[in-house]
């Protein structure tokens, strides 16, 4: 019982101080969660336009251990299929534990238009478990993304998750599903050094300002450094590894109040046909 209370307290605090009600949306591979204009990486339920940039079919798994509390962790799975006409992606995300959990499943369609811009739409089905009624409730919600290459070294990205502000209604309460608008940029100082910036607004939360640098030190190793500010300034450090067809990202965030947040993502690229 004590554990449940502790969890509730921490969970409530997390709701207020991190990405608030957005726990179901997985943290992106990009440092400081600056994925909206990251043309080289597609993360489930982040900007679906990046699905259009996939050149090889891939499968990925991601685990986020929020503040070393298993009950607050997020697990996600993504599968992107490349084709000539349109790339297709299936994503799944799970947050919570047995007494309270949320799930998100999405089907995304995206295309890259002559390397000038990419557009993607995703249809997501959100469901949450309500212990009071021992039932699941769900809702369908859209997601739209855009990525534009304004010059060979500068990209802009835009993403909106649940712009229709669809919520879950039960007999007793209304559960708010996050409604997120993101806008960001990506700039290449050189092919090795990338700078990203991003602004997010979840409608019931504070603005989130984020920036991060990614430096490819070696062919198979990148170091990432960034920070974001919502209520607190959160420094972020990460690494990226490539080994054969495997790609691995390890990102850490140090929240001044809640502590360490770690994320690991592994992706596998299938052979190009």
């Amino acid at each position: 019982m004590k554990k449940i209370y502790s969890l509730l307290v921490i969970f409530s605090f997390c709701q207020l101080s991190i990405s608030q009600i957005s726990s179901i949306v997985p943290t992106s591979n990009s440092i400081a969660q600056t994925s909206v204009a990251d043309n080289h990486s597609w993360t489930a339920f982040n900007n679906p336009a990046m699905l259009g940039n996939l050149e090889q079919t891939e499968i990925g798994f991601q685990f986020e251990n929020r503040y070393i509390i298993p009950e607050l962790s997020n697990k996600s799975l993504q599968f992107g299929v490349v084709s000539n006409l349109v790339n297709t992606g299936i994503s799944f995300s799970h947050f919570g534990y047995s007494l309270y959990h949320e799930m998100l499943i999405g089907l995304g369609l995206a295309r890259n238009f002559s390397n000038k811009f990419s557009m993607g739409v995703q249809f997501n089905y959100y469901s949450a478990y309500f212990a009071a009624s021992n039932s699941y409730r769900g809702a369908l919600l859209p997601q739209v993304g855009l990525s534009v290459q304004l010059s060979p070294v500068f990209n802009l990205g835009f993403n909106t998750f649940n712009p229709t502000q669809t919520n879950l209604k039960t007999e007793f309460t209304e559960k708010r599903i996050p409604s997120i608008f993101s806008f960001g940029s990506e700039y290449y100082f050189s092919p090795e050094l990338i700078w990203r910036t991003q602004i997010d607004k979840e409608l019931s939360s504070n603005y989130r300002f984020a920036t991060g640098f990614e430096y490819s030190m070696l062919h198979n190793l990148a170091i990432k450094l960034g920070a974001y500010n919502s209520d607190y300034l959160v420094p972020c450090l990460g690494f990226g590894f490539i080994s054969g067809r495997f790609l691995m990202d390890l990102n850490c965030e140090l929240h001044p109040l809640l502590g360490l947040n770690t994320m690991i993502a592994i992706r596998y690229h299938f052979l190009k046909h």
Binding site: F113, S114, K116, F117, L146
Partner: peptide
């Protein structure tokens, strides 16, 4: 704008 697409932010 690119081809038949045009954008505004």
């Amino acid at each position: 704008f690119f081809g038949s697409f045009s954008f505004k932010n």
